[in-house]
Amino acid sequence: MSNLISRSPVPAAAPPATTPPPSPPSWVLKVVMAVTGVMLVGFLLFHLAGNLKVFLGAEEFNHYAEWLRHLFNPLMPGESFLWVFRVVMLTAFVAHIYSATSLHLRARRARGPHRRRAMPAKRWSVRSMLMTGAIILCFVIFHLLDLTIGRSAAATSEFTAGDAYGNLVASFQRPAVALFYALTMLLIAVHLSHGVWSVVNDFGATGNRTRQVGLVLAGIIAIVIAVGNMLIPIAVQAGWVA
């Protein structure tokens, strides 16, 4: 006869953890994602407005670029505002990437070895966030080398510091580069269409109206930024801007 009798105490339900939760907590990382995401979106909208001046001609565009460099003069002398701005944006960018990767790792761990399968196709924008983000990162590096720093390979041989308009036109006259820019803008749209919707949730918007507005806004922002920016390489290629 099998004996199943045990003398050990009856196990009790495991108590909640007594150790602190992961640090920094995921909800903080999510808030960081959302705040930096909004900052980056803000930059993109601002940048888009500037970029579209390219249609007003070289004069206007370069003037605008110059004005940017000296924003808040004389309160903030020389290019100091620009540098403050760059540091802030860079920090946000790094924080965004840091949070994204650590959240991603936590998510993988929490899910365990059996990945979610059979997700509907419409989820590909969420699933590809890390990938679209990584491509954006590559794009930004290329873009800075191309139009801000002027290092060759990325930049054209005609790069002239100060002639933003000329650099841009020269760069976009290379079909491959124009195509790369245009495609990246599509991926940015994908990243943002989901990203802005995430922001709505991360800021804790529970009102139905707010959520609906947020969802629509996510689409609009994504389309505006992508279409607006894409117009430029297209225009250069088409010869509308030269």
């Binding site: 909640p16 953890a17 939760p21 995921s26 909800w27 990382l29 999510k30 993988r108 929490a110």
Partner: peptide, 17 residues
């Protein structure tokens, strides 16, 4: 509750699944 949740569960990426 959120502290305890973070012990065992992952963060949300708004998948909506």
């Amino acid at each position: 509750m959120i502290d305890q949740m973070e012990h065992d569960f992952g963060p949300c990426s708004t998948y909506g699944e």
